[in-house]
Amino acid sequence: MHNFEFVKPSSIADAALALSGEGAQPLSGGQTLLPTMKQRLAAPEVLVSLTGIAEMQGVCTGDGGLHIGAATPHVVVAREAASHFPALAALAGGIGDPAVRNRGTIGGSVANNDPAACYPAAVLASGAVVVTNRRKIEADDYFQGMFTTALEEGEFITSVVFPIPQKAAYVKFNQPASRFALTAVFVAKFDGGVRVAVTGASNNGVFRWAEAEAALSADFAASAIAGLTVPDTDMISDLHGSAAYRANLVKVLTGRAVTAAR
């Protein structure tokens, strides 16, 4: 790993200042960034830890739904979101392993936008709002392809606000080695309709499955998507699963998520 200067501000304002410098990069839980740095695929000159900022921690209800501080580790979301948004809590409780959940944060995951990460599916399916040190970004505008987001240089996530659906479920099929999502589906049923977000499957990162949303908005039952097929054109094909296999998983897991939704 290349060396760097380590700073750990205690306020969003100080973090913003530190990140305005040349070569500075934010560090949240580090559960993805550190392995990347070990491989020398990332080489920041200044690393700005966001885990010491109290105003970026915690889970609470408020305007627009459930507010989760960006530096909140998965283990806290799994525990504290459980009574408000069980599907989100279950998702957080299924990320990585206990040690990863103790360090990894929602902000880190959403900022990184790994195509096989769990949180992006929840954010997109819930129509959540990504709040940064500069602005609020709608989920539909935020995700822009794998590892690509609307975040600008020096901008970092401070919280994510989740509208709470009537019913939801997240069903994840593990990639057998990494335990990331080989494919996973988050289904969320709101008054105004159903949103279905898929992670792990597409070359374009997390995406909404529009046909399923339409069918499920009309009839929220697994049988409603029985006649749909998922094209495999943009699906990831790798040693763990062909494009066709992932396309199959999208449908199978969506059906299971609908059945499991509560």
Partner: peptide
Amino acid sequence: VLESTTYDENGQLLTGSYMDYAMPR
């Protein structure tokens, strides 16, 4: 059930870490 050591046609090891080589858990 799990373990596969896979080289691509250029001889690059595709399963060179626990991210891709599935160890029994």
